[in-house]
Amino acid sequence: MNIEHLPLAWTPVCPLEDIVPNTGVCALVDGEQVAVFHVDTGSDEARVYAIGNYDPGSQAAVLSRGLIGSLGERIVVASPIYKHHFDLRTGECIETPAYSVSAFAARVENGQVWVASGCVQS
């Protein structure tokens, strides 16, 4: 069975307005800490991303506190401890791919941020 075609179970996280643009928050989704980011694109459409909150490099749950930026075309968060960059779309650690984290589907619906239970990539 192809897992990509299974319906996702969505968990409400918080109202979008509770996440300051270009910052992140930590949410508990299906028993796992997930870092949820609100990226300001300059348009009316809100973009949200979700990756695992645990930084394997520092062995601490801190990614939601990182700084959002870009490396080329990639939207990333820099871990606040060792400054490793994690791609917000895929969870890939740019400097050390072995430190990559799970990525989760995220969306905004009626002003509410939702994250899918179960990762979409790891």
Rank of each mutant, 00 (worst) to 15 (best):
N2T: 09
N2D: 15
I3L: 15
H5Y: 15
L6G: 11
L8R: 14
A9Q: 14
A9R: 14
A9S: 13
C14P: 00
P15T: 13
L16W: 06
V20A: 14
T23M: 10
G24E: 01
V25E: 01
V25Q: 00
C26L: 00
A27L: 00
A27I: 02
V29K: 11
D30F: 07
D30Y: 12
G31T: 07
V36Q: 06
V36Y: 10
F37L: 09
V39Q: 07
D40T: 01
T41S: 14
T41E: 13
G42R: 06
G42V: 12
D44R: 11
E45M: 11
E45S: 13
R47I: 03
R47A: 10
R47M: 15
Y49M: 05
A50H: 03
I51Y: 08
G52Q: 05
N53H: 10
N53W: 05
N53G: 03
Y54D: 08
Y54P: 04
D55E: 05
S58R: 01
S58P: 09
S58D: 03
A60S: 12
A60L: 07
A60M: 06
A61G: 11
A61V: 05
L63V: 03
L63F: 02
R65Y: 04
L71N: 14
L71E: 14
G72R: 02
E73K: 15
R74A: 08
R74N: 00
V77I: 03
V77T: 03
V77M: 00
A78I: 01
A78P: 02
P80I: 00
I81Q: 08
Y82D: 08
K83A: 02
K83N: 07
F86I: 02
E92Q: 11
C93E: 01
I94K: 04
I94M: 12
I94W: 08
T96P: 02
T96D: 09
P97L: 06
S100P: 03
S100V: 05
S100M: 00
A103H: 07
F104K: 10
A105H: 09
R107D: 03
N110D: 15
N110Y: 12
Q112F: 07
V113S: 04
S117V: 10
S117Q: 06
S117K: 14
G118D: 09
C119R: 11
Q121N: 15
